[in-house]
Design a protein around this nucleic acid. Structure first.
Lengths: 244, 244
DNA sequence: ATGATTGTTGAGCGATCGCTCAAGAAAGAA
DNA sequence: TTCTTTCTTGAGCGATCGCTCAACAATCAT
């Protein structure tokens, strides 16, 4: 199963919008193409709903503790449909992670960094929103990227590494934003962007764990305010004063 | 299998020192009793060494990701011996957790709280020692209690709850120490012991995660110093000033 | 010696794991 | 209608899971 078969590549396409078309693809105009009817038997389940159900399960139990039997039960489909639509368990999880990163609860960090004009404003908003989002009972507690692959067998070390890379990538994003803040003069020249990035990442990961341990939003909000007191206070604070 | 059999209770005794003796136990003088030879065939393995090997495995992979096959291989024994000596996988894990809590790396929090005269000194020492201990390459990274039962199937929810209770118990211990600090005047009357306890617990759990993600001791040390800046600074600081 | 007690061994139990596949069903194309 | 394509279904694959057990081995008591 190493060569040949050039046309059998990935029948499950993870359709970003629709994109993948069969055949030789004449006329690559793309753009609109409003509703070309698909060929054979139509799927009997809503792909997005099934993906959301899988997300909830992986989010709550983690990658390995979620069995394919659990998944098919929650998604309302049989194993054959799952494997035809999503590939295998690992591919399904990767699609879940991708979609989680685009969802509001998985993207609030990126959104805050993009929208807030100051670094302090961004990190204050990140911690405060984490305090509200992580324990929100409308979804499993904490952050999927932080807690879904903590305990895995060596054969699934790739899943663990994938999420770890996402976490460490967030740290690098934090560090870049804080270095920018030093250049902008928002932070004093003596401030250490890498140290601050590690600190805020640590607090975020700890808050996710606390939420999973049952900490209510009010407790996490107080933790967020205390954590913000580590912000270098020599000069440049732009947001409302810390705590009351 | 619900009644009768009064003499078959727990042949694996988890010997705290030696303690459990067979028979009707005449002469309960206890104390010394230097080397009473045991009855039947002696064990062919060192119980403490086997327990240490199991600890390393559970610490690194977590409860469910560690299989009995892994355990017997690392402990150098066969399944029958494991079950005769430790009961079942769950009982072995509980004994591992108990022994971990008495080991230096599992007890540094308790030791610091007991030895340091001031609350600030205790929490500063806890964070700084965590920064050194969590990434120490002589054992698996992070804290076993924090990370060994994050992802479990519902049938093992009891293990998860057991570790969560230990974590939340630590939070209550933190809170009690900080309340004492308010009563002592070390902390200002406006300080919030519960909020501070949650904050330090959050930072500790985050540091454990960071260590598992590969953060070196130097990075965690900087995180610890930044975290200590949240200490209420109105008055009462007893230790060296924060950072440089 | 013999028996009692305890530990070790290797085979293997039922259950679950992720996953596959032949057969059938539902759609458009001819 | 018939063919092609796509999806669903239910049975079941080999592997691993935690765990058990009869047989044997090694010690002490008698």
């Amino acid at each position: 199963m190493s060569e040949a078969n050039p046309a059998t590549a990935a029948p499950h396409d993870a359709a970003p919008e629709d994109a993948a078309r069969a055949g030789a693809a004449a006329e690559a105009s793309a753009a609109d193409a409003p509703r070309r009817p698909r060929r054979g038997r139509p799927p009997a389940f809503d792909r997005a709903e099934a993906l959301a159900a899988a997300t909830r399960l992986f989010w709550q139990l983690g990658y390995e503790a979620t069995s394919v039997t659990d998944l098919t039960a929650a998604m309302g489909i049989r194993p054959g449909s799952l494997y035809a639509a999503f590939g295998d368990k690992r591919s399904l999880f990767e699609e879940v992670v991708r979609q989680y990163g685009r969802s509001p609860v998985g993207a609030f960090v990126t959104v805050a960094l993009a929208e807030e004009p100051t670094a302090y404003g961004a990190f204050a908003r990140i911690l405060r929103e984490a305090a509200a989002v992580y324990p929100d009972p409308s979804h499993p507690a904490g952050c999927l990227v932080i807690s879904a692959a903590t305990n895995v067998t060596p054969q699934d070390a790739g899943v663990q590494a994938q999420l770890r890379e996402l976490r460490n990538g967030n740290l690098r994003t934090f560090e870049a934003r804080l270095r920018q803040a030093v250049e902008d003069g928002e932070l004093p020249p003596g401030a250490d962007p890498k140290a601050l990035a590690g600190y805020f990442g640590t607090v975020l990961q700890g808050m996710s764990q606390q939420a999973r341990d049952g900490a209510p939003a009010a407790d996490l909000a107080r933790t967020a305010e205390l954590a913000l007191r580590a912000w270098p206070c020599a000069l440049g604070r732009t947001a409302p004063p810390p705590a009351r």
